[in-house]
Amino acid sequence: MSDEEKKKPLTYLEKLRQSALNQKNYGGEVNMEEARVEARDCPNCGAGRAYRHGLTACAYCGFTFMDIKLTDGVHIKKENNS
């Protein structure tokens, strides 16, 4: 390229093309990981359920996975409705 071509202002299309080449992904680098299935089977009836935090009972047979009793927390206090 000659000095004249370097000093010549870029056209709109050339600016777009240059910004497209220089842009980066918004989310950062892509982490490649293998696909997996997160499921939990009911030990009582064998029904498959999607595993989620907070899953406490089987929707089919009513088997209780976890028996949790709520107590007073730091920010949330239980109320007495008597």
Rank of each mutant, 00 (worst) to 15 (best):
K7F: 01
E34S: 06
Y51F: 15
T71P: 00
N22H: 09
S19P: 00
E14R: 02
C61V: 03
E29S: 11
S82E: 14
M1H: 11
M1N: 10
R40Y: 05
D72R: 04
G48V: 14
A20W: 05
S82D: 14
S82M: 08
I76N: 12
G62W: 05
E38Y: 10
K7E: 12
S19G: 02
K6F: 02
R40H: 08
E79S: 14
L70S: 08
G54D: 03
N80M: 05
G73I: 01
V37I: 10
K8R: 15
T11P: 01
K69N: 08
G48R: 15
N44M: 10
N44E: 15
C58Y: 08
A47I: 09
N80R: 09
F65M: 07
G28R: 04
K7C: 01
K69Q: 13
A47M: 10
D41L: 12
Q18F: 02
L13A: 09
T56C: 08
I68V: 13
Y12A: 08
N31W: 05
R36P: 00
E34R: 08
V74H: 10
L13C: 01
I76S: 10
D3E: 14
K24H: 11
F63K: 04
A59K: 10
C58H: 08
L21K: 13
A50F: 05
K15Q: 11
K8V: 00
C45D: 04
E38G: 06
V37Q: 11
D41C: 11
A20N: 12
D67C: 00
S2R: 05
G46C: 04
N22V: 02
P9K: 02
K15F: 00
I68T: 07
M32T: 10
L10R: 08
N22Y: 05
E34Q: 08
K6V: 01
V37T: 12
S19Y: 06
D41T: 09
Y51G: 07
K78G: 02
